[in-house]
């Protein structure tokens, strides 16, 4: 009785594996296996010139980790990475939320404004980084023609603003991050806003809630999940981001982040082992921060 059913089921399972196998093979060969190899290399003395001679299971050592952690620029770079990530994430999510709220109701020209907002996110990073460099150039940048005294936004590590010393280049790089990625948050929040049932807010109007109260007690609680998701996604992507900082400053003027160090170790020095160790330290730091956040957030959600 069960025999035909079982063979059909087996046939289905076989077809499933057969159809998924190209996907699995390419993911394993190009992503998973190389990653495992990178982990191995982090514990070996491998250089680009001698890589052929280094066996896969050769002498393992912790020297690479000791080396990268004791390098003079490491801790400042880690602090930069953290500051850049937290500020960039918070800024882009907040700006995206404001933009979504402002564009929630229809008005003339909304489609045009919405399209404009999406361009920074869609455009190639190389083009927009170059555009910012030109616009902020101290000699002929258009932004500096609007200022009394030109500011070297991307090549000046420190400056004073209203009497306070601020890291100029690092803040500029963060502003770039916020500008480029707030459209991502905008899209997510707007989609959620437009899916919210109207009756809750209408009831709040009837109850005499002001606009700010309606936002605080009716709308915002319903956006909690999408904002938390956005915060995690942006945090993960920004923490290991390489392109933006590399293209804007090359890691100079006090903007060096850990991913730029990984790149320099790999290409300028050809020190694969140290580069892999540095990348592993970055990945582990990310995982630790994520787990801490999810623990904290999970408990908070339980309490609520």
């Amino acid at each position: 009785m069960t025999a035909p059913g079982r063979t059909l089921r087996r046939q289905e399972a076989r077809a499933g594996l057969w159809l998924i196998s190209p996907t699995l093979v390419i993911t394993l060969v190009v992503v998973v296996v190389p990653l495992l190899w990178a982990v191995m290399m982090a514990f070996q003395d491998v250089r680009l010139i001698s890589v052929r001679r280094t066996g896969l299971f050769g002498h393992h050592t912790l020297e690479n980790f000791a080396y990268v952690v004791s390098q003079p620029g490491f801790w400042p770079a880690l602090a930069n990475t953290l500051f850049y990530t937290v500020a960039g994430t918070a800024g882009s999510v907040a700006a995206g939320l404001v933009a979504a709220l402002a564009l929630r109701d229809r008005f003339r020209g909304r489609t045009l404004v919405r399209a404009a907002i999406l361009i920074p996110y869609v455009a190639p990073v190389v083009a927009v980084a170059f555009l910012w460099e030109v616009m902020l150039n101290p000699q002929f940048g258009i932004v500096n023609t609007w200022l009394e005294r030109p500011i070297a936004f991307l090549s000046q590590a420190r400056g004073t603003f209203l009497g306070i010393e601020v890291p100029v280049a690092l803040l500029t790089v963060i502003a770039f991050e916020v500008w480029r990625y707030f459209p991502f948050a905008f899209l997510f929040v707007l989609a959620r806003l437009q899916a919210l049932p109207k009756d809750l807010e209408e009831a709040a109007v009837v109850d005499g809630a002001t606009p700010s109260q309606r936002f605080r007690y009716v709308v915002l609680p319903q956006l909690g999940r999408v904002i938390a998701l956005l915060a995690v996604l942006r945090f993960v992507f920004t923490f290991t981001k390489f392109d933006d900082v590399y293209l804007l400053t090359g890691g100079g003027a006090g903007t060096e982040v850990v991913s730029v160090r990984v790149f320099d170790l790999l290409t300028a020095r050809g020190d694969i082992g140290a580069s892999a160790a540095q990348a592993l330290v970055l990945a582990v730091a990310l995982v630790v921060l994520l787990v801490a956040y999810l623990r904290f957030h999970g408990r908070e959600a339980e309490g609520a």
Binding site: P34, A38, L48, T240
Partner: peptide, 18 residues
């Protein structure tokens, strides 16, 4: 794979392709 940082993957692939 989606969340994994490209900069980490860059190391073994760069080595392999070299």
């Amino acid at each position: 794979v989606y969340l994994f940082p490209a900069i980490v993957l860059a190391i073994p692939l760069f080595t392999l392709f070299t």
